[in-house]
Design a protein around this nucleic acid. Structure first.
Length: 196
DNA sequence: ATAAGGATGATCT
DNA sequence: GATCATCCTTATA
C-alpha cells in the first residue's frame, strides 16, 4: 500500500523509525530503507534549517512528503523526506538501504565494480543509486515516478547519535539516527571530530 | 578491521 | 578562509 501523506505531518523524529523497512521507488529502481536520521524543527542545531530559511533549505519548509535534496561536500547529493506541516522545517535524511529492484540501473549509475551491499550504503551513494538529482529538490514523493510503501509488519529499530554531525547537534543529546539491527546495508558510524 | 588524507564547491563568518 | 548531514583510495593491523 502506498503511504498516506498525513504521516509526514508529524515531526521527523516520530516519522524516522517508521521508515525503516519502507520501500522507496524512483522509476524502475526500488530501495528498501535500512538507516535514517531525523533533523527536527525548532531547536535542532544540527539541522540545515536551524538558523533561517535560505534558498538551499527552502523545500524543508515546504509541504511534507516532498523531497529535500541538497549538494554536499562539493560533489555529492543527499536526499531527505520533508516532515512537519508546511512552514515548519523538519526532515528525515535517507542514509542507507538495499536495492531490491532495478539493479542494472543502479549499477550503471554507481559503477560496475561496486559490491552489491555498497550500492546504497551511505546517503550520497543511496541518492546516486536511485538516480535522484538536485533538479528534483522539492518533488512530491507520493507521485510518479516516486512511490513510498510502508512495511506491513513492524521492523526492529536501534537508536544512536547522528553520523558526521559536528558541534552542537552531534553528540548523544540528539540520538536521532535509526537503523535496522544487523542489516548489512547500514553505513559505518563515523563520529565527527567536532561532535560534542 | 579502522584510520587518514584528498577531492571539490556552496554557504556562512 | 572555514566548515561541512561524504566518498574513495591507500596505508597499517
Amino acid at each position: 500500500m502506498t503511504v498516506d501523506r498525513d504521516l509526514f505531518s508529524q515531526d521527523a523524529v516520530d516519522v524516522a523509525p517508521l521508515l525503516l523497512g519502507a520501500l522507496l521507488r524512483h522509476g524502475d529502481t526500488v530501495l528498501r530503507i535500512s538507516e535514517v536520521e531525523a533533523y527536527q524543527a525548532g531547536d535542532d542545531p544540527g539541522s540545515h534549517a536551524f538558523r533561517r530559511r535560505t534558498p538551499r533549505n527552502a523545500s524543508m519548509f515546504g509541504p511534507p512528503g516532498h523531497l529535500y535534496a541538497y549538494f554536499s561536500y562539493g560533489m555529492h547529493v543527499c536526499a531527505n523526506i520533508v516532515c512537519s506541516p508546511e512552514g515548519e522545517a523538519s526532515a528525515v535524511l535517507l542514509r542507507g538501504g538495499e536495492i531490491v529492484a532495478g539493479h542494472s540501473e543502479a549499477r550503471a549509475r554507481r559503477g560496475a565494480s561496486i559490491p552489491e551491499r555498497d550500492l546504497a550504503r551511505g546517503p550520497a551513494r543511496l541518492t546516486r543509486a536511485l538516480g535522484i538529482g538536485l533538479h528534483q529538490d522539492g518533488a512530491d514523493l507520493t507521485v510518479d515516478p516516486f512511490e513510498l510503501t510502508l512495511p506491513t509488519e513492524p521492523v526492529p529499530a536501534l537508536t544512536g547519535p547522528r553520523t558526521g554531525v559536528g558541534g552542537l547537534g552531534g553528540g548523544v543529546e540528539f540520538p536521532w539516527r535509526f537503523w535496522i539491527p544487523g542489516d548489512r546495508t547500514v553505513s559505518v558510524y563515523r563520529r565527527h571530530p567536532r561532535a560534542g
